[in-house]
Write a protein that binds this DNA or RNA. Structure first.
Lengths: 347, 347
DNA sequence: GTAGATTACGTCAACGTTGACGTAGGAGGA
DNA sequence: TCCTCCTACGTCAACGTTGACGTAATCTAC
């Protein structure tokens, strides 16, 4: 039971010796290639079985002409975030159908770490990558792409040309959410968002602005809080907004952790039944809270599937123009987004 | 921008030619080994930079004596489950410190799929594995282990000898939960659990029995529902329990999805403020529900860290006796577990 | 001044596998 | 009968890298 204690993985040579054939013949049998007679096939199979032989994909992919490692890299922001986790799972499912395994990493939205992980993947010669680009410069991604590595960006599009992407209707859905609130009579709708270096945050903010404009509301910059990273920052910011003398009657929270923080602040002040809330990204149990939390739900399985389809197409040599797939998000009415503003306009 | 369109990754030979040295010298420079003069080092570095050379770990690990692929395999039940995702992240963090990447897969608690993924990992010659064993026979795992592959089982211990494991105090914590409920005066405490083929489910059930026994309560088998896979099954089962003429006054739900299902049933009947509930596994927003959900929280970061430490120790040749680490879970009081039984003993 | 050690390289083969190509023997056709 | 084609193998080299070993030049010590 030692780690590889004294043992050595059997090789084709061992199998060949036992079956009294050449290694090439073993190769043919293992890979189901023609050119081996039935009894030889049986002899080789038998020998492989008794020795417990398993092919070495490392050596194989080194020598093969296609050079495939049957492995793709997945670089997301944080694999423990439910959104990222669900996306990983979706990609993994499709990869499995292609006989491909997934090397996964969390870049923590840190360009340096992302660069490092990218290099690690490259060093392992993955066949392709599915990447959630970290904020800031994408030059490491671009360089990798320019070397010809098949790559699909998810959740955030590339800032450079020639690369496929799969994103959500961030802007349009955000606008719809704001219009939904405005339609209920809200006039003071706050925006709470994650870092503005993230493309999704900017898009959602733009959608918010568009929504205000469509509804004929004027932007009040004092109701906008951005660069809230994590629930704690969101909670503090929301608290500050709510404690103003003219507080918002509705909140649009543009990221799942921000939504959580905002909800905490609302609850602390017992305002969760009086201030409307719509969050971007669904989360488990959103329907069990009181009131249920109205959210924009991204179609995560579709995002993952599309991303996987695109990488595999590129890996298989598809050279058509880059695709920028956009998957619609849906507004799920659960109650919090349907709270009307107070009749007197104050609260 | 084609996939590897016409290009070829530069190799050591290319670098060697440009720097007018032997490939061996390039190897020395790339790996920071002694035996290269300062100006040669600079020339090689320069050449590598201009060519965009990146070492091929595949070829390297094939040739090296230690045979390390700097990759470990992680085989969990479902990477999109928050518990699994958090665990993956914890393992990944520690792996990164060792310069190791993670090949991740979901076995869906299906032994056949697990066996297949195991073979895939083996074929790629991972240095070690962290596995959440699928229910049923573990013979595929055992065979892999007997070949000498460093392996650590998480969440569920091996049914065979000689393998490290990291688990939670399933039994003791479950007992504590039941005692906590009994201490509030509950006498009809129901058990709702996942498949009994899962070791954790059995342990938690045993803990439940121990708790009843310690509290001097008799087991009422009509209050026990097992083999509930997923929230829907749990909801149905809970509903049936609650609709009995002598319904339970408290529920112990032994898995996170079961807890969710039970909560839905309670809410449907508006009993969530009257029937006590303790769930195994914490989940996001458990504190935001009304009442807050009392749970047994597993120390996921500790589980992941310990698992990673153990695999890496084995990979580094540690041959000491197998370790079976047990990480304590904590009872988090949030309200639902502190609801007393109705005064009249009915409801 | 010379034995001996040290430094800075180079050469060669091998890791496990497969592509290119060779060959012996038999089948089939003219 | 002889030529061709096909089948079932085998041989060899190469994928990109590194361990083992060789060697020439330089340095150290007495």
């Amino acid at each position: 039971m030692d780690p590889r204690g004294g043992r050595r993985e059997p090789t084709m040579r061992d199998v060949a010796a036992l079956a009294r054939v050449s290694t090439k013949t073993v190769s043919r049998v293992i890979n189901d290639l023609p050119g081996a007679g039935p009894e030889v096939v049986e002899r080789v199979r038998e020998a492989a079985r008794t020795l417990g032989y398993r092919p070495n994909l490392t050596a194989s992919s080194l020598r093969r002409s296609d050079r495939r490692s049957a492995t793709i890299g997945v670089l997301f922001e944080d694999l423990s975030n439910p959104f990222d986790a669900a996306l990983l799972r979706a990609v993994e499912d499709h990869a499995r159908r292609h006989g491909v395994l997934v090397l996964a990493g969390s870049s923590e939205d840190d360009p340096a770490l992302q660069r490092e992980l990218l290099a690690s993947l490259a060093t392992r010669r993955v066949d392709g990558m599915v990447v959630m680009a970290a904020g800031g410069h994408q030059d490491a991604l671009q360089r990798e792409r320019e070397r010809g590595t098949p790559m699909v960006l998810v959740d955030r599009p590339p800032t450079f040309d020639g690369t496929d992407s799969v994103t959500t209707t961030n802007r349009d859905s955000s606008r719809d959410a704001v219009l939904h609130l405005a339609g209920r009579g809200h006039r003071r709708i706050a925006f709470l968002g994650d870092r503005q270096t993230l493309w999704t945050s900017c898009e959602r903010y733009t959608g918010y602005l568009e929504g205000l404009a469509h509804a004929g509301l004027t932007l009040r910059e004092d109701l906008v809080r951005t660069d809230l990273h994590g629930p704690d920052a969101a909670e503090t910011a929301t608290a500050a907004l709510l404690d103003r003398h003219e507080p918002p009657t509705a909140l649009f929270t543009a990221q799942n952790l921000v939504t959580v923080g905002a909800m905490r602040a609302l609850r602390d002040r017992d305002l969760h039944h009086r201030v409307a809330l719509i969050g971007f990204d669904d989360f488990p149990l959103a329907d069990m809270l009181q009131p249920g939390v109205t959210v924009l739900r991204q179609d995560v399985p579709a995002l993952g599937r599309r991303a996987a389809e695109l990488v595999f197409a590129r890996i298989d040599g598809d050279r058509s123009e880059p695709t920028h797939a956009v998957i619609p998000a849906t507004l799920i009415h659960r109650g919090s987004g349907e709270i009307p503003p107070p009749a007197d306009g104050t609260r």
